[in-house]
């Protein structure tokens, strides 16, 4: 399915990916081509076929409710872009 520029702009917003003005047409074209390939799916007869989310028919294991993780803040924040008083800083969040 061919998508238009507006759709790509909306997707980019949804996925929080800035696409420059110079690139948007190229991106629109390539995504349209990919969706063209993907549209071959529509030819498949999938009546009464259950979707398959996992390759194996396995069942979830559950974990015991025991604390196994101690404070690792220092290690885990070593790669953080901006931290103050143990908090990750971001531009003001507005509700």
């Amino acid at each position: 399915m061919a998508v238009d520029r507006g759709t790509i702009e909306k997707l980019a917003e949804l996925a929080r990916i800035q696409i420059s003005e110079a690139n948007i047409d190229d991106v629109t074209t390539s995504i349209s081509e990919i969706l063209g390939l993907v549209d071959q799916l529509q030819a498949a007869n999938t009546d009464n076929v259950a979707p398959m989310a996992h390759p194996l028919d396995a069942v979830q294991r559950l974990r015991a409710d025991q604390v196994t993780e101690n404070n690792q803040r220092e290690d885990l924040q070593a790669c953080a872009p901006e931290v103050e008083d143990g908090l990750f800083l971001v531009p003001q969040v507005i509700d």
Binding site: D65, Q66, V67, E69, N71, L76, Q77, D85, G86, L87
Partner: peptide, 27 residues
């Protein structure tokens, strides 16, 4: 009121210092 998070073994106790109960999975 579980002792640990739903998907990690980090504590859920209320009132800890910021990010001291957020393990690699929680982050």
């Amino acid at each position: 009121a579980t002792k640990t998070k739903i998907f990690s073994g980090a504590s859920t106790a209320f009132g800890a210092e910021p990010n001291t109960q957020a393990c690699a999975i929680d982050l």
